[in-house]
């Protein structure tokens, strides 16, 4: 069941992104979509709106890049509770650390191992 919900929620988030790309002028590139979704996810999360989506959708809400924003926001909020002002700076990046490190390590490894095919 949770797999079906992940499919639906994840699919819907992507569908919204696709509509934004197709229905707005050409200037909206994939980079803009990623930036928009990460900040959007963080803001929705801080407002308490993304959490419920994660409850329903599981990976369907955490795997889209908006889930990364959610992760950053929640990490920050928790760290502010625990450590105060210092947490505002360290919390988000700490929470996102695993994903970022994985992206850098795997990104670098793949770049060393493979050549683009064109």
């Amino acid at each position: 069941m949770s797999i079906v919900m992940a499919f639906l929620i994840g699919g819907l988030i992507c569908l919204v992104g696709q509509l934004i790309m197709d229905l707005t002028p050409y200037k909206v590139t994939p980079a803009h979509i990623l930036v928009g979704f990460v900040t959007g996810g963080a803001i929705l999360s801080a407002l308490g709106l993304y959490g419920p989506l994660v409850k329903i959708g599981g990976a369907g809400a955490t795997i889209p890049i908006s889930g990364f924003g959610h992760n950053l926001a929640q990490g920050t909020l928790e760290a502010v509770q625990a450590k105060g002002l210092l947490g505002a700076f360290s919390g988000g990046i700490t929470a996102g650390a695993a994903g970022i490190a994985a992206a850098v390590i795997f990104g670098f490894t793949m770049a060393v191992l493979f050549n683009p095919r064109g």
Partner: peptide, 19 residues
């Protein structure tokens, strides 16, 4: 967007220019 927005797309956006 179906393959840009998931975190796999984020990885793609890192590996593609790196390669």
């Amino acid at each position: 967007a179906g393959s840009i927005i998931p975190i796999t797309g984020f990885a793609n956006s890192i590996v593609a220019p790196a390669m």
